[in-house]
Design a protein around this nucleic acid. Structure first.
Lengths: 217, 217
DNA sequence: TGTACATCAGTGAACGCGCGTTCACTGATGTAC
DNA sequence: TGTACATCAGTGAACGCGCGTTCACTGATGTAC
């Protein structure tokens, strides 16, 4: 019996598939999911309209129907990131015992960044985003609100107190943002290697948070 | 008397200038200077071999003689940034009275970032740089040494103390790096606008540094 | 239940663009003798 | 002081690439009657 010659594994014919439905059904979410996959695999530079469309199995002009342009797609993806970050911060706040909320929130912030480095990097690249997009504005506001909830509970504070509260908030934010950025860039690798037990970035964060006291208000 | 028709201001004929010497003389530095100019004017995305060469009035293949490729040029530029940052940190340390050195260094770090936002951004984009370049390695090491000089004076510390010192160093670094990044992204703008006197990012940094105490060793 | 029609979502081809890299070349410089 | 020659630095044209955008189109869906 003659066996059929094994076909060389050729690239998926992709588009003109016979049984493939013309409409995708939920292309918008499929594109966002593929974009996030590309982002975590190859960084912000890997995010192009064509690559995303390719990954979703769709013509590269198709995303325009859902996002307008590339900045739109990136903005909606970043908005999703801010939404998730805000939720993580709020959740950490809610679960932490009184007096430990700042630390809990800081840990949640860094944990989010380390778990989603690509998304975190995109969120920190405003020049690639369109700030006018409602989804992005809303998600940003939501994440900020979570951050600010730590010190926002005193609407009647005097001017001096107000400024001190703002400084505390900015200090915590700066600390955890800086830690996340530096950790993701591998800047602590050398330092950690010299420490006994060679801690990782997550456990070292506890040391770092412990090394800092926010001055009492 | 007939006045000559005013010539439309046409773009500099650029290359085939008659009197122009074939050899530039110091093209390497001219390219670095132009690259930094472009960087501060248009961000990291504006840095292409062709744009830099164009700005320096030279063929776009010329930079290869001095930097090999684009990553080489960016790396040497970033190296210069680290050298200057390291010098600024060391200078601030040297001038500050004992006990105020951490604050002085933090202020110098943020001041550098705010004065050279493009360069600072490039330094924080390791994926665009070539870490194997000796100039970059050296400059990085120099800047780190300045940062570490704050707590590096105790080589015989025990394990617990060592880890605490490392945590303090990382905390200060994270704080000022995060502050610089967030300030440059305009993240404090809304917050500052609500404060009495609407401070700018530089004076607000004093508040932020004042809001934080590094735990005693 | 059927039919006409408007709207929507994805296709596929084409466009022009700027990019980094390669290459043979040539003008300028410096060095050996 | 002059000359031959190797090396260096910049030229200019060409290459292929992937990009975002535009466009007329068509298949699918939903709605009005």
């Amino acid at each position: 019996m003659r066996m059929p010659t094994p076909q060389p594994a050729r690239p998926q014919p992709a588009r003109p598939q016979p049984g493939r439905p013309y409409h995708h059904g939920d292309l918008r979410h499929a594109l966002l999911a593929e974009a996030e996959r590309l982002l975590e695999a190859g960084g912000v530079a890997a995010l192009t309209l064509r690559a995303v469309a390719r990954g979703a199995g769709v013509t590269h002009a198709a995303p325009a129907n859902h996002f307008g342009d590339l900045a739109g797609l990136l903005s909606d993806l970043a908005a999703d990131g801010y939404r998730r970050l805000g939720a993580a911060l709020a959740g950490a706040m809610a679960q932490a015992p009184a007096g430990r909320q700042a630390g809990a929130m800081g840990r949640a912030y860094v944990a989010f960044a380390l778990a989603h480095p690509g998304l975190f990097a995109l969120m920190g690249r405003p020049e690639r985003l369109d700030p006018a997009r409602p989804a992005l504005r809303d998600a940003l506001a939501q994440a900020r609100a979570a951050l600010e909830s730590l010190v926002a509970a005193r609407p009647h504070a005097g001017a001096r107190t107000k400024r001190r509260l703002a400084a505390q908030q900015a200090a915590l934010w700066s600390l955890v943002h800086g830690y996340a950025v530096l950790a993701l860039d591998g800047r602590f690798a050398g330092l950690l290697a010299t420490l006994p037990g060679t801690p990782d970035e997550t456990s070292f964060l506890d040391d770092v948070l412990g090394a800092v006291t926010l001055a009492e208000t």
